[in-house]
Design a protein around this nucleic acid. Structure first.
Length: 548
RNA sequence: AGCGAGGUAGGGUAGCCUGGAGUACCCGUCGGGCUCAUAACCCGAAGACCGGAGGUCCAAAUCCUCCCCUCGCUACCA
């Protein structure tokens, strides 16, 4: 039995996450956590709202409320949304808490004491109207190369060139639209990753053997090969944890730092004592789920901070990076209430449908395309026709032939079933989640083909007069019921509600465990079985089309 | 522009590290079977110059080089 600590990239607390965000980290992490719990491992799953950062601050200004008010409101909304999707975190916390502040400061102070923070000065744009510093992206104007007007301080979207804010012609502030910008000398503290790069490289080379994606390993190593540079970990703004040093009264610690350490702070919110048993215990396997856009924060910056602080915090064991779920036809939107996001999606279909179909399309190694067609196909043909229908036909036929059903049925010894279960477990062990869900489908396919091959409905008719037929049909029913029951268990990480429904026909009321796969079963066929999945209706399809 | 990943039947994927006949899976299509089940299920077939061009090799989807396309990162978007 291992000790596992699972994290999913923290959703920002200024908008409703869209389906791409969900399938990129929180959902696969939840699926994996449910599997580990099922296996009986000591596994905790922490996630939460990332509350700091400029976007939250700006959204608060726009809404006319304090950033902490907006961030806490959104936190509650997002937390409830995840509950609707049957995500069962050990703790879903947030980053703007005293617990997190404590951990952030202890790491920050040690980095400072150990000589890994470099003070450096720079010229930073300042808006006289808004009376605030502007991040590079908040400066807009004309591109010095292609002369298009929509260039931003970091990059021109038109010609794609990387820019410096001072290069922008006719700059104006993206917040107020005015041109009252001046450049002011500022100082920031930078984490000297250059001093740590040898150790970080060693760590990645060694640890990436634990099922890291090719993309995550190679881009991290290639970045190190090019040479790591000091990276600012403070910002000149008000929303965030103040930098605990004299001379930095107007600065806060950068959102990414409070976010990465937020995983720890959130664990501390969960349990003020036990958090150390996970985070400062070399036997804990830290499994981090995240999208491809923020890999290096987890592979380079967190390891750098953890090493530099020398506080014994663990480094990631596995980086489970996802690519992106994209859609040419449907609008995924980050803005409030617009587009197909976690809030609007759950109003159309229940949690099981989204959980299963999104995991079926999980962009594990490459971007994958989400479309109405793909969703309908997955729900209707895979979930409903293959899995749901198998359960239904087995249970109904069994119920109408109750006299031919054994009271107690041993777990099937069919080697094909054993192989599929092994494949499922091996896939999870290697964090190959698409392969794992594929094994579930395979088991249903096997059940369906056994049904067609052996035609138990024919044998059942002959059973009264034919002892041999009776013996055969009893065996087949046992086999099929065993498969149906096992299917109920394997479904649990993906579709917890359907799993519970299916297992209820076997008198199981508790959450399933892997050990139960080998248990003897006692079918309960008192009530009429109801389909565990349904096809997508025209009405639901129409609701989806609203977002095309 | 540099770096990383991806490009495989009509659609979606696996295979690539460690070369062995384009091998496999799902959807869709076509043909057959079944009638227990939610018009569901099962079996079979057709369908691919494996992004392009070179190279290495007895043999390349797989290894090497160059090119094209998509996505991500490039250190103050987070």
């Amino acid at each position: 039995m291992g000790r596992y600590l699972i994290t999913a990239a923290l959703p920002y607390s200024y908008s409703v996450p869209h389906l791409g965000n969900f399938v990129g980290s929180v959902l696969p992490a939840d699926v994996y956590h449910k599997y580990l719990k099922m296996r009986g491992d000591d596994a905790i799953y922490v996630c939460g709202s990332d509350q700091h950062g400029t976007p939250t601050e700006l959204a608060a200004i726009k809404a006319g409320v304090a950033p902490e008010v907006l961030a806490d409101e959104m936190h509650e909304k997002i937390k409830k949304l995840f509950e609707k999707y049957e995500c069962t975190f050990t703790y879903y916390g947030k980053t703007n808490t005293p617990e997190n502040k404590g951990v952030v400061y202890s790491i920050f102070n040690e980095l400072y004491n150990n000589g890994y923070l470099l003070e450096r000065e720079d010229m930073q744009a300042y808006c006289n109207v808004d009376e605030r510093f502007l991040t590079d992206r908040l400066i807009e104007g004309t591109c010095p190369y292609c002369h298009k007007r929509n260039a931003r301080g970091d990059q021109c979207d038109n010609c794609g060139r990387l820019l410096e804010p001072a290069q922008i012609k006719d700059p104006f502030c993206a917040i107020c639209g005015k041109s009252e910008i001046r450049f002011v000398k500022t100082k920031n503290l930078a984490l000297e990753l250059n001093k740590l790069q040898g150790d970080i490289a060693k760590f990645i080379k060694k640890t990436s053997k634990n099922n890291w994606s090719k993309d995550a390993v190679n881009k991290s190593l290639s970045m190190i090969k090019e040479g790591l540079k000091p990276r600012d970990i403070t910002r000149n703004m008000k929303w965030g944890f103040p930098v605990p040093l004299v001379g930095y009264e107007n600065s806060v610690i950068y959102v990414w730092i409070t976010g990465l350490i937020g995983y720890i702070g959130i664990t501390k919110q969960w349990d003020s004592k036990r958090w150390r048993d996970y985070w400062q215990n070399e036997h804990t396997q830290l499994i981090q789920f995240l999208g491809k856009d923020n890999t290096i924060f987890h592979t380079i910056i967190w390891p750098g901070m953890a090493m530099g602080s020398r506080l014994g915090f663990i480094l990631p064991h596995t980086i489970k990076e996802s690519q992106f779920l994209v859609s040419k036809t449907l609008k995924f939107s980050k803005s409030h209430g617009v587009g197909l996001n976690m809030k609007t999606a759950i109003e159309i279909l229940g949690a099981d449908y989204w959980r299963f179909s999104l995991m079926y399309m999980y962009p594990e190694n490459a971007d994958s395309e989400f479309s109405e067609r793909a969703l309908v196909e997955t729900v209707n043909t895979i979930m409903n026709d293959k899995i749901g229908n198998l359960a239904q036909r087995v249970l109904k036929l069994s119920k109408s032939n109750r006299s031919l059903i054994e009271e107690e049925i041993p777990s099937t010894k069919d080697p094909k079933v054993r192989r599929i279960i092994k494949e499922y477990e091996a896939a999870f062990d290697k964090l190959q989640l698409k392969k794992a869900i594929g094994a579930v489908v395979k088991l249903a396919e096997l059940g369906n083909s056994i049904m067609s091959d052996r035609e138990p409905w024919v044998l059942a008719k002959n059973a009264k007069s034919d002892a041999k037929a009776e013996r055969q049909v009893r065996e087949i029913f046992s086999e099929l019921l065993s498969i149906t029951y096992q299917l109920g268990i394997l479904l649990y990480p993906f579709t917890p509600r359907a799993s519970a429904e299916l297992l209820s026909y076997f008198g199981i009321r508790s959450e399933p465990t892997s050990a139960m796969l080998n248990d003897k079963i006692r079918p309960k066929l008192d009530s009429d079985p109801k389909p565990i999945f349904q096809k997508i209706t025209d009405k639901e399809t129409e609701s989806l089309r609203k977002y095309s």
